[in-house]
Design a protein around this nucleic acid. Structure first.
Length: 818
RNA sequence: GGGCGAGUGGUGGAAUGGUUUACACAACAGACUUAAAAUCUGUCCCGCUAAAAACGGUUGUGGGUUCGAGUCCCACCUCGCCCACCA
């Protein structure tokens, strides 16, 4: 009897699949399509660790199951290979990013193939390939053409270690997302002219669509909180003694009568205008200090004491004509709303803290039971609000705005936390922004026929540290004629944020070798949206950007769906045994190749990681887990070998029924569980089935006949998405010459699950007192009589009078005694 | 502070409102073996019991709905994640 030895079979089948194109999909296939994959991977020098194995095995199982079920199933592969690690490596070693990226990808090829992922290698893409970024640049020019790419000079986050600006989303708690350690400095602000994508144009559309997405709930919640829609109103106050209006944004216009002061952000243009003589020096100093502190630092210590100063000026509250003082404070942000607020200390915690510190009036306008100087957001009935008294707050909110609107003093307004997407980066290793600045025409997009704007090869990658990328020093590249007037022009020397490349790649997967267009419409109409997508973190920015692009492409008629990812799963992480995350910097990542090398094989790693916990939960790496999975595979191997060696003989009817029951229970459960991405219980069901067959084997009932063969083959087919190598090997040993992985999925027959007798649970007052074996369609009366005849049940019935009998057919009886 | 989610054996985890603890890991015992590994079989929530059956208890805590609650409702405690001076 052959022994299970992964080393002997895994590599053999990987080569065969490659040679035969087992996982190569025909993009024009007439079969129903299915496309799924994990989030784009960045090929770092370190390669993948066992945590990544989970991220990519999950979509592998989904696409494998569909391929077996007769779909044209496509698991694409590609590399998100622009970015700082390769550039920094180049600075350190002089090896070009082009070179080191190639080397890194080679290592990834080895690892991916060793894990048996069913990716279509013939359609591999790479964002740093000019034939790819040509189309990234084309996307930019489309946005530019539709005024959704624009330049603006404004203060931007600058990471002194990356030597580039960062998008808002790449700043976490005041630090760069790549440099957020405790030793790393806070990001600073630099005033630069930068390129933005106007993602805010789609804020509403994306938010509205979020609710209906079939995505992990927490990921959807992140999308919603990032977009951050607030519905409210802008209300205009006038500055006392000036001819100036002062507009504030509020979500609670119903509390307008409680507005006892106004707060301006330090950057607010009116600060300079309204501040009175004796306050001017102090206010200007405060405002200057606050502005240099930067928004992030101001937000960072949210718990700190509020600071601020009185400007000496007053504003007139439009609802009651009352004069309220105007203050300056850094807790109000210029970047949100109007940069000015009406402070309602009775009903807003921040305003409350401020009022208490500076001894300002607190006027309650919503009735409640709290202490006088307490603060609550609660809705209620208005008080101290003139003609609006006794009105419910929700109604007053509308009424007050309507009334003020008639006088031109208010209007409904929606605000978003999301800002436009800053895409300029002052670095070398990115896709160049395809713009030529012309003195007479301004910024002009490079026409499609001249794309790609290729990155020039350079000698020294070290960033200048100034405000421009090293590309600015490559004169022969920078100087280019204006595409419009042919006059002298200069190329834009900033490159694009890597997220631009990774926010449309899924469309390129659908038409990866097209030289004429980014994608053919027909191809994308057929293959979009992505049926299954998963990632190991919330990736809120990536998902927002990808959705924005898709909405945009849809508005141009370039795609036929607005949402890129139909089903999106957030999978938990694999963590080290002590609960710390696996990380490249700590060097505690376990290389899956090492585990394979130990002799356990790729199938065991895959199976263990899928079995350990539900996909959305974190898993602590358990050294014992792999041997456990290996043990199960070994049992599958053994029973197949023993079947092949068993005497040829038909089984008796009872055994046939048992085998079919085991087989079809598994078919039903595993098919359903894979569909619902419940891999741990699917694997448990397979273990149960194999245990069941082992029991029959132990009873001397294993024979080589068609019923046994059918059961074993069904189990192999169900196991194939999880453990592709061993199942392919055993499939061939069973005499098949085709691959188990294409068009082989067992058919479920519910008839085999029906039993002649059923177990009826008998409860008395909800407690289990007996179990009865009865013919499956027994009458209610027969069941009840049998139940009451049971000795144990009788005893409990005797303790009182029977008042009620609950009967769930085929399942349970509950006799209620009182 | 806000939002989302989760608390079940020694451990990872199962469980359409209907037998709590499937499946596995670890542990223990037995078989095979000169021995070990591997493999196979069995035991494995707590209490009562010499042991078993029976019985009683048990899904973070306290209440509620129900014939019946891990599951639904309310309050509280703990943990995790995300957001956070966004008006």
């Amino acid at each position: 009897m052959k022994r299970y030895s992964p080393k002997d079979i895994e590599n053999k089948w990987q080569k065969k699949w490659d040679a035969e194109g087992t996982y190569t999909v025909n993009l024009d296939s007439k079969k129903p399509k299915y496309i799924g994959f994990g989030m784009f991977n960045y090929p770092s020098g370190a390669g993948i660790h066992v945590g990544h194995v989970r991220n990519f095995t999950i979509p592998d199982i989904m696409t494998r199951a569909k391929r077996q079920q007769g779909f044209a199933s496509y698991q694409p592969i590609g590399w998100d290979s622009f970015g700082l690690p390769a550039e920094n490596y180049a600075i350190k070693t002089g090896v070009s990013p082009q070179e080191s990226t190639k080397t890194a990808i080679k290592k990834y090829h080895e690892q991916y193939k060793a894990l048996g992922w069913s990716v279509d290698w013939t359609k591999e893409i790479n964002t740093t390939d000019p034939s790819y970024y040509k189309w990234t640049q084309w996307v930019f020019t489309k946005l530019f053409e539709h005024k959704l790419a624009y330049q603006q000079e404004s203060p931007q986050w600058w990471c002194d270690q990356c030597k580039t600006v960062l998008a808002d989303e790449q700043v976490l708690s005041g630090k760069c997302w790549r440099h957020d350690g405790s030793d790393d400095p806070l990001v600073t602000k630099r005033n630069l002219k930068q390129w933005f994508f106007k993602i805010t144009d789609y804020a509403d559309a994306m938010l509205d669509a979020t609710d209906d997405l079939d995505w992990t709930q927490s990921v959807k919640a992140s999308q919603q909180s990032w977009i951050g829609r607030s519905i409210g109103a802008e209300v205009t106050f006038t500055v006392d003694g000036h001819d100036k209006d002062l507009t504030v944004f509020t979500t609670r216009p119903d509390t307008l009568f409680g507005a006892t002061f106004i707060v301006l952000a330090p950057e607010h243009p009116l600060v300079d205008v309204v501040t009175t003589g004796e306050n001017r020096v102090d206010v200007t100093t405060y405002a200057k200090a606050a502005i240099t502190k930067s928004e992030v630092q101001r937000q960072q210590d949210a718990d700190k004491e509020k600071t601020g100063l009185f400007t000496g000026a007053f504003a007139i509250n439009p609802v009651n004509g009352k004069k309220v003082p105007i203050w300056v404070a850094d807790y109000v942000l210029m970047g949100y709303g109007t940069g000015a607020i009406m402070a309602v200390p009775a009903h807003d915690v921040r305003d409350n803290a401020f009022a208490k510190k500076f001894d300002l009036d607190i006027v309650r306008v919503i009735a409640n039971e709290e202490a006088d100087d307490a603060c609550t957001h609660a809705e209620g009935v208005l008080i101290n609000s003139g003609e609006y008294n006794d009105m419910p707050s929700a109604k007053a909110r509308e009424q007050i705005v309507t009334d003020l609107q008639k006088k031109g003093l208010a209007q409904e307004k929606v605000n978003y936390k999301m800002r436009d997407w800053l895409i300029s980066r002052q670095r070398y290793w990115g896709a160049p922004i395809p713009i030529i600045h012309c003195e007479s025409c301004g910024p002009v997009a490079v026409p499609e026929k001249d794309l790609p704007v290729e990155l020039p090869h350079i000698e020294n990658y070290r960033p200048t540290g100034g405000n421009v990328s090293v590309l600015a020093g490559v004169e022969e590249w920078v100087n280019a004629p204006c595409p419009k007037c042919s006059g002298p022009g200069k190329r834009e020397t900033d490159t694009m944020d890597g997220y631009v490349c990774s926010s449309w790649y899924f469309l390129r997967y659908m038409d990866p070798t097209n030289n004429l267009e980014a994608w053919g419409k027909d191809r994308v109409h057929h293959w979009a949206p992505i049926d299954f997508y998963n990632g190991g973190d919330h990736a809120t920015a990536h998902l927002l950007y990808a959705r924005f692009f898709m909405h945009f492409f849809h508005s141009l008629g370039l795609v036929n769906t607005t949402e890129p990812f139909k089903k999106m799963i957030f999978n938990g992480k694999i963590k080290a045994g002590d609960g710390s995350p696996f990380s490249k910097s700590k060097g505690n990542g376990i290389d899956p190749l090492a585990v394979i090398e130990q002799g356990y094989g790729a199938d065991a790693i895959r199976l263990y990681e899928m079995f350990a916990a539900p996909v959305e939960l974190d898993v602590l790496w358990d050294e014992q887990g792999i041997p456990g999975a290996y043990r199960f595979l070994n049992r599958v191997w053994t029973i197949t070998q023993e079947f092949l060696d068993a005497p040829k003989k038909q089984s008796n009817d009872n055994v046939i029924a048992d085998i079919r029951m085991i087989e079809h229970k598994a078919i039903e459960k595993v098919t359903d569980d894979i569909d619902g991405v419940r891999f741990n219980t699917a694997i448990a069901a397979l273990m149960e089935a194999v245990n069941g067959l082992y029991k029959l084997k132990g009873d001397g009932q294993l024979y080589n006949n068609d019923v046994w063969q059918a059961a074993i083959e069904s189990i192999l087919q169900l196991l194939a998405p999880f453990a592709p190598h061993i199942t392919e090997e055993l499939w061939s040993q069973l005499g098949h010459t085709d691959s188990i992985h294409i068009n082989h999925w067992p058919k479920f027959n519910p008839d085999y699950l029906t039993l002649d007798t059923v177990t009826i649970v008998v409860q008395v007052n909800g407690k289990l007192r007996a179990q009865l074996q009865l013919p499956k369609d027994s009458d209610k009366d027969v069941v009840l009589t049998a139940a009451k005849a049971d000795e144990n049940v009788k005893e409990y019935l005797a303790k009182g009078t029977l008042v009620k009998q609950i009967y769930i057919p085929g399942k349970l009886i509950n006799l209620v005694v009182s």
